[in-house]
Amino acid sequence: MSQLETAGTPVLPHTELYGRVLDFLHREAEMLDTYKFDAWLSLFTDDIDYQMPVRTTRFLTEGDGFEEFGLMSENRASLTTRVRRLETEFAWAEVPPSRTRHFVSNVIVEQEGEELEVRMSFIVTRTRQDLDYQMYTGQRVDRFVPDGDSFKISRRRILADQTVITATNLSVLF
């Protein structure tokens, strides 16, 4: 156990809290895959800090390659703008819409006071028109704050595995 890195107190998989976090993540993924973008927005706090850094290939001694510079750098207003854009008839990258599947696994939950750090691996597949699958993979690091008997997300880091995004664009949401 001592070799395991923990930022906070581990919340173990058999617990009720872990179950609620997992259910939240699955329902969020379902919202994105069924185009419930407005509902998805309601999962974030007003001060949501949502970042997807550029990753570069570096030697391990130089770090993990995540840069200060982003592929996305979002707040509530910009995430809302992205969702409103998708609701227009003219957001061509998603008109007609992509079909996505958001998978989350390897979910680790740690408690820090009232808040939770939730780390997970993700795979997002996307196909659109009559095209083959494209894929985005990585780790997501979320900060959950309590909201009644559920949660809101106040911070999200999308840590992509790719240094060169090979999937045309980032018109899908993570």
Binding site: L71, M72, S73, R82, S171
Partner: peptide
């Protein structure tokens, strides 16, 4: 400048992403 750029241009940009659809 950075926040304006990264939200509007590049692969996730709300302008740029539609251009890629055109080119493809």
């Amino acid at each position: 400048v950075y926040e304006t750029y990264v939200r509007t241009f590049g692969p996730s940009g709300i302008f740029d992403q539609d251009d890629m659809e055109n080119w493809e």
